[in-house]
């Protein structure tokens, strides 16, 4: 049983209620949904903003640390006046300005093997926007055990990638990344417009998964290069990988 939409909600979302396959049923599903966003940096902040705007009922934001000046070229939920204060609380106040109906659980921690299962268990869907493979692996391991879908989004320089992981319907994240790649550097080159682009697409995947319409990016990976504007759809061959 999905929750009733209030008159205020019907008014706020009326332009998206006309979307084929979505409607009031899809909006009610969003209202009833909880999404975990692992880090609300350049990518995750845009995911959170779009999900808040779309009317997702509850967001769990996990991100440690305080706002730094070097965050501000891309982390659109952080502001100059919040430098030195917790990032996740900056995100919370900005999202509440956009959608005061939104429930937010702000966690001043990054995901790790010790806390991933507990945090993931609270969500219907997870969006992975973490900059370290250790976090991605821990969260995907937990999501796999709990049967939760993960929207895997990442970027580097002017490139970005996006896929949906939900074993056994798809391969596992560990089929793509069996262990932490030793060559990945914590500091990566980034324009906010690139992390924002992939953040919007990741938000749309989460909305499709939650509302149950469209075709999620399962067993496919969208890879884009904004330097050349080349977009490729990669087939992830589950049969051979899992064999």
């Amino acid at each position: 049983m999905q929750p009733e939409l209030t008159a205020d909600e019907l008014s706020t979302y009326e332009w998206q209620l006309d979307i084929e396959g979505f409607g009031q049923s899809g909006q009610s599903r969003l209202k009833n949904a909880t999404v975990l966003i692992s880090r609300v940096g350049g990518l995750g902040s845009v995911v959170a903003y779009e999900l808040a705007a779309a009317g997702v009922g509850r967001l769990i934001l996990a991100h440690a640390g305080n706002v730094q000046p070097s965050d501000l070229n891309r982390q659109i939920l952080m502001t100059h006046d919040w430098i030195g204060k917790p990032r996740v609380l900056s995100a919370e106040r900005r999202l509440k300005e956009l959608n005061p109906r939104l429930e937010i659980m702000a966690i001043e921690e990054n995901l790790c093997a010790d806390n991933a299962e507990q945090i993931v268990s609270l969500a219907d869907c997870v969006v992975d926007a973490a900059p370290l493979f250790q976090e991605r692996l821990a969260m995907n391991d937990a999501a796999e055990r709990l049967g939760k879908p993960v929207v895997e989004a990442a970027m580097y320089e002017l490139e970005a990638s996006l896929t949906v992981i939900q074993p056994p319907d798809t391969l596992r994240f560990r089929d793509l990344v069996p262990d932490v790649p030793a060559g990945w550097q914590r500091r990566f080159p980034v324009f906010g417009a690139v992390s924002g682009t992939i953040g919007c697409l990741a938000a749309m995947e989460a909305i499709k998964l939650l509302a149950g319409f469209g075709t999620p990016l399962k067993n496919r990976m969208l890879r884009m290069n904004l330097r050349t504007m080349q977009f490729d759809m990669i087939r992830l061959r589950y049969d051979e990988l899992s064999g």
């Binding site: 880090r39 995750g44 989004a153 990442a154 580097y156 990638s161 990945w184 980034v190 890879r223």
Partner: peptide, 8 residues
């Protein structure tokens, strides 16, 4: 050759 990326 596509190394997986993890920028967020």
């Amino acid at each position: 050759l596509m190394p997986m990326i993890s920028g967020g």
